Computed example of a mutant assay.
Amino acid sequence: MRTAAVVGTGLIGTSAALALTGRGITVYLEDADPDAARTAAALGAGTVEEPEEPVDLAIVAVPPALVGKVLADCQRRGLARCYTDVASVKSGPRAEVAALGCDTVHYIGGHPMAGREQSGPLAARADLFEGRPWVLTPTPDTSTDTLNAALELVALCGAMPVVMDAAAHDRAVALVSHTPQLLSSLVAARLEHADETSVRLAGQGVRDVTRIAASDARMWLDILSANAGVVADILDELAADLSTTVAALRSLQDGDEAARQAGVAGIEAVMRRGNHGQARIPGKHGAPPTRYETVVVAIGDQPGELGRLFGEVARAGVNIEDVAIDHSAGQRVGLVQLSVAPSAVHELVVTLRARGWNVRD
């Protein structure tokens, strides 16, 4: 691949363009909003000039409802030799592409499983896709050259290709992406009118659950509209689980010992199911999940403290597998939670304390 076009310079399109330009690919940028394309170009994602000849691959980075229309326009103009998209739903766009009579030999659906709660070109990152799955959904008549072009795009962006049927993809993302987004929003919505004292008690748990509730509502309306039926089916199943859990909680307040024990069993069952489901989520680099221990260190809210802590951990010869920071309300201090291999915990705690760090038990 020597040349590419990105049509739609939002978060995903601009991030792909940045990754490609970083690998020496000449990228041409288009957007219905010229200012967005110029912003992406200013960030180093490519040029807003028109290509003089068809590019090797065009990436259609628009909402699911617009994929068919935009693809048809790009093919009419002869923009590229091969085409792909990055929409987060695949069945609807595929049906529209077929209905519009688009060339499906030189088109393959795609969906990089990466994103942020921010949107727009200014939120883009060249490393957004590194190590992330990138689903490809070829049609029966997708050519080998088109598949290879898409695979090259995935490799250039540092992602991992996963070939799936479009309908299977939509069921999967409804479970692991679309439903969690709605649940995060529903939990965060309970905070909208909560009293200030309650909100100030928020810790890392509620921050984790509600992080993606900050996502662009308009963007998610496009996504959910395109996969509404499948998401609704999963929510129906969740609603049944919620009803059972509510009944179990009510039983815990019952004066009857048998009812209370039934409630205990019900809550324990749902918690254990959650344990088992969470344990199935792949760990680092797609490997089987690994259990790490957490070392909690209190640090001051001042420049350089976090970097100094990471430097100390590195000098101790310990690899940080994950990190989270819990900020104390009303105080200029934070608790840094370092996830490390269990075998490294004792030596790391001893080393950090010897160097003056406040390691919490």
Rank of each mutant, 00 (worst) to 15 (best):
I299S: 02
L183Y: 08
S184N: 11
L43I: 15
S88I: 14
Q331F: 06
D254E: 15
L79R: 00
R38S: 12
G109T: 13
A354H: 11
N358E: 15
G229P: 02
A269D: 00
P161W: 07
W220D: 04
V163M: 13
P133C: 10
V350W: 11
A159W: 02
L221F: 13
S339R: 05
A114M: 13
A298N: 11
V296C: 14
A189M: 11
L182C: 09
L352D: 10
A40M: 04
V154K: 04
H285Q: 15
G92E: 01
I320W: 10
A99D: 09
L306G: 01
A172Q: 07
V297W: 03
R360K: 07
C74S: 12
Y107N: 12
V297T: 09
D170I: 07
A87R: 02
D241V: 12
V231H: 06
R260K: 08
A32K: 15
L100W: 08
P138S: 14
L249V: 15
T84C: 00
V295W: 01
N227Y: 07
V173E: 05
E96I: 01
V62M: 12
R272L: 00
R315I: 12
A188E: 05
D256T: 02
G356S: 14
V323K: 04
L183V: 15
E257S: 15
C82K: 06
C157A: 04
D73F: 06
A16M: 10
L242G: 08
G22W: 05
S15N: 06
G110A: 10
D56S: 06
E152D: 02
D241A: 15
C102Y: 00
A72H: 01
G266S: 10
D301V: 15
A213M: 04
V89I: 07
V230Y: 05
R308P: 13
R76P: 09
W134C: 09
A341W: 01
G283V: 12
G8R: 05
E305N: 00
G304H: 05
L224Y: 13
G266K: 02
A41K: 00
E268H: 11
G304N: 12
A240Q: 15
G101W: 04
D103A: 13
H169F: 00
R315L: 07
C157I: 04
P63V: 00
M164D: 01
A217D: 04
S251H: 15
I223F: 11
